[in-house]
């Protein structure tokens, strides 16, 4: 049987919100170590990889590995009923044909419980190699969100280039061109405000802004976002969840015609 109790249930709600615009049906894989998700959007352009360690939970029991096949629009409807300070409990039998969800609130004394039918989802698993990337940039997630949102008015493609000058986001469209340059900045006392750029060699790649904007739905999960790029490879956009896990997005580049 599988049983997990998360004092800060809101973390799980934010994870659901961070992927539900990209994919409809997902398997949540449960093992003795973690809950994890790997799924692609229907166009196979973007991949989401989520991991939440068992150490994030107050109680975690998973007798044998199982996959919980969920329809995210339905899960999202249920999580709308979760209060901000609720504790979340998940339970499933080894047969994994339904999932029990409970939202508990000690202060108000309420317990809401839901039983959700699970589905068998055929999912293609991609083998994502553990690569050393040529550029790694850490920046405030709110700043990344603002940049990719603002650049949408200029065009639908964003050129991301990492050079000695800094990290540059550019978009070109009918009305003209916009560039936003982020320089390394470690002046602030708060580490989450820092911009750090590790560059082994310059990289310049083009990406669809629509997808970059989908990914920023993970912003509430983490004050910082990590961008990793290598020439001719999909970009990795990682939102660490404290020391307990992450939501990572992989996005295939747009090629020059």
């Amino acid at each position: 049987m599988f049983e997990a109790r998360l004092a800060n249930g809101n973390i799980f709600k934010m994870i659901v919100e961070s992927i539900r615009e990209l994919v409809v049906d997902v398997n949540i894989d449960c093992s003795t170590e973690e809950l994890s998700i790997q799924c692609m959007d229907s166009a196979h352009v973007a991949l989401v990889s989520m991991s939440l360690s068992q150490s994030a939970f107050d109680h975690f029991r998973c007798d044998r590995s199982l996959s919980l096949g969920l329809n995210l629009p339905n899960v999202s409807k249920i999580f709308k009923m979760m209060g901000r300070d609720d504790t979340m409990v998940l339970k499933a039998e080894d047969s994994a044909d339904k999932l029990m969800l409970m939202f508990e609130n000690d202060k108000s004394g309420t317990i809401a419980d839901f039983e959700l039918k699970l589905m068998a989802i055929e999912a293609e698993q991609l083998g994502v190699p553990d690569t050393a990337y040529k550029c790694s940039i850490s920046m405030p997630s709110s700043e990344f969100q603002r940049i990719v949102r603002d650049l949408q008015v200029m065009g639908d493609t964003c050129k991301i280039s990492c050079t000695k000058e800094g990290l540059k986001f550019s978009a070109t469209g009918q009305i003209g061109t916009g560039n936003i340059l982020m320089r390394q900045n470690v002046a602030s006392e708060k580490e989450e405000d820092h911009v750090t750029i590790d560059m082994e060699e310059p990289v310049e790649l083009n990406f669809a802004l629509r997808y970059l904007n989908f990914f920023t739905k993970a912003t509430p999960l983490s004050p910082t976002v990590i961008l990793k790029m290598s020439p001719g490879l999909p970009i990795v956009i990682e939102y660490p969840i404290e020391q307990l896990g992450h939501v990572k997005y992989y996005l295939a580049p747009k090629m020059e015609e």
């Binding site: 692609m40 196979h44 352009v45 991609l126 083998g127 190699p129 493609t157 992989y250 090629m255 020059e256």
Partner: peptide, 14 residues
């Protein structure tokens, strides 16, 4: 602008 690549062009199935 530009042709959108897919992830299968980079990653194999596991």
């Amino acid at each position: 602008s530009g042709l959108q690549a897919t992830l299968q062009q980079y990653f194999g199935y596991s």
